[in-house]
Design a protein around this nucleic acid. Sequence first.
DNA 1: TATAATAATGATAATCATTATCAAAAAGAC
DNA 2: GTCTTTTTGATAATGATTATCATTATTATA
Lengths: 131, 131
Amino acid sequence: MKKYSKQREVILESLKMRRDHPTVDMLYEDLKLQMPNIGIATIYRNVSELCACGQIRKIKCEDGIYRYDGNAENHIHFECNNCHKIFDIELEEKESTKIKKELQNLANTINAEFDKQEIMLSGLCEKCKKQ
Amino acid sequence: MKKYSKQREVILESLKMRRDHPTVDMLYEDLKLQMPNIGIATIYRNVSELCACGQIRKIKCEDGIYRYDGNAENHIHFECNNCHKIFDIELEEKESTKIKKELQNLANTINAEFDKQEIMLSGLCEKCKKQ
DNA sequence: TATAATAATGATAATCATTATCAAAAAGAC
DNA sequence: GTCTTTTTGATAATGATTATCATTATTATA
C-alpha cells in the first residue's frame, strides 16, 4: 500500500511548477534548499514511482541522462542539438487527437495495441539558430 | 582523416543485415563469432562514429540501454511494454513526407529549425496482446 | 491516544553501461 | 620499406542509477 510522504509531494509539486525538464541532480539541488536532509535516492525512488502511476513522464535524451516532466499530457518535445535544452511543443486538443489517430493507424500496421507516444524532435532552437 | 577498419565494416554490415535492434552487447556476442578478437570498446567506438555520420541510428529505450538501428531512414519504432522488443513501422514515402511536414509545422510554433525526428510508440505487440 | 504494522527515508555500497587511457597493430602516404 | 596517424583491444575509470538496511514517518487498530 502507498503511504503519503512529504518528499513525494514536494518532488511532484516542483515538477508541476517547473517549465524546464530537470534531471534528478537538478531536482536534488533545488529541493535541498527547502528540505536540506532530502536524499538523492529518495528522488530517484519517487520519480520512478510517479512515472509508474502516470503522474509525470520520463524523457530520454541524447546524453542518456533522464529528464522528468511534470506534464504527463500528450505533447511533443524538441531537443536543441546545440544547447541541449528541451522545449515543449503544446498540442491543441484537436491536433493531439488527430496525431493520436494517425499513430494508432500506424500501430495497426503491425497489429500492436498502441498505448503511449513519445515524440522527440531535434534541431536548433530559436536562440541557437540565430548564432 | 578517417581510416578504413575491418571492424567498422563488419559492425555496419551486421546492423544493416539484422532486423532486430541490438544493444552493443548483442552485437559483441554476435561479431565475436566471426571475429573472435574484437573488443567491446571497438564496438562502442564505431557505433558512436556511425551514428555521428548518419549511417545508423541510436534508439533510446525504456531500460536506458541504447539499441542501434542499421536503418537510418525515417521510420517509427514501437516498443512492447511486455516483451520489450522493438519493432519497425515502415512508412511509405507519401506518409513520411506528410508526417515530416506536420512535425515541421509544430517545430515552427517555437521557431525552431527542425532537423530530425524520433518517434517511439509503446504498448503491446501482436504476440503479447494475445496473452 | 498509545501501539503495532508497514512503508518511506537517507546514507552509502553495489551495479553496470559507457568512456577514457594507452601500448601495440593496422592503414595510408611518401 | 619507412614514417605518420588512426584504430584496435585490454582494462581502468566514470557516473547515473539501483539495492541494501537501519531508522523514521505514516497509517491502521485497539
